[in-house]
Simulated assay, not measured.
Amino acid sequence: MSLKYIIYGAISLAMFSCATKQDINYMKDIDGIALENSIKNSRVDFQPGDQLIITVSAKDMDVVKPFNQNYASSTTITQYSIPSSNNLPQQTPLSGPTYNIDTNGDIIFPQIGKVSTKNENIETLRAKLTGLLSEYVKAPIVDIKLINFKVSVLGEVTKPGTYVIPDGNTTLFGALGLAGDLTAFGVRNNVLIVRNIDGQISKERIDLTSANFINSPYYYLKQNDVIYVQPNANREKAARVDPNTGLYISVASVIASITVGILALIKN
């Protein structure tokens, strides 16, 4: 009889192990994680390390040639576009004089010299350079591209990560498209966007099932916005199941088969 109780005990232990679950909800503190990511990377205006392509044009292009000298080499970056298939992003060369903003927030512009970008964005820097160039060129046209504009897309999307947007302009739908759209487990009516403007953190929950958010200030994304798509209840439930459950069931099945055989021998 003692052997019988030992066998029953082994079966009970195996079955208990099968029921063991583990809480692996990695993103319980996602607001804090996204907030930290945003504080680390966010800015609205230009800052040291930004890369700009600045080209000058006018009616007489020969006149503006001195202002289009390449003080830094042209760059090749990953060109992202909203995918219509499974094609990978392409490496695309962006032509034009490339300027790296130095640690003091300055660029060295041909013929003009040092130009500060502190507290400037694309629009205000364009106006500043247009004013400076007007002393040399009649009706100059200045084009500026921020070529390391990036946003982060996290959570229940097909391809989470940080995406560089070469034209410096994208919408929430555009960023989600780059990330391969939401998975079947993504909550579509509670998408989190974290933004940092001049040190002021804002967090907004967006309902993608409603068209009202198109008029929201979060429809068009800003530099280093962080987007998080939370998992639905089914995904969270699946995440809490011990990944070894299948192994436990297999072991329990083997033990049960052996037990049946031993009990049959004991009866005989």
Rank of each mutant, 00 (worst) to 15 (best):
I11G: 10
I11K: 14
A14V: 03
T20G: 00
Q22D: 05
M27A: 15
I33C: 01
A34R: 00
L35W: 00
S38D: 05
I39M: 15
K40S: 10
N41L: 11
P48G: 05
G49V: 05
A58H: 03
D62I: 04
V64A: 04
Q69D: 00
N70C: 02
Y71Q: 06
A72L: 09
I77F: 09
Y80P: 02
S84R: 12
S84Q: 07
N86A: 14
L88R: 11
P97L: 07
N100W: 02
T103A: 07
G105L: 08
D106V: 12
D106F: 15
K128D: 11
L129S: 04
T130N: 11
S134A: 10
P140C: 08
I141Y: 06
V142N: 04
D143C: 01
K145G: 00
L146F: 03
S152Q: 13
V153K: 03
E156K: 15
T158F: 02
G161K: 05
T162A: 14
T162P: 05
Y163P: 06
Y163C: 07
G177Y: 03
G180L: 06
G180F: 02
R188A: 14
I197F: 05
D198H: 03
G199D: 00
K203H: 04
P217Q: 07
L221W: 08
D225P: 02
Y228M: 00
P231I: 13
N232V: 11
A238G: 09
R240I: 06
Y248M: 08
V251Y: 13
A256I: 15
I258F: 15
A264M: 15
L265H: 06
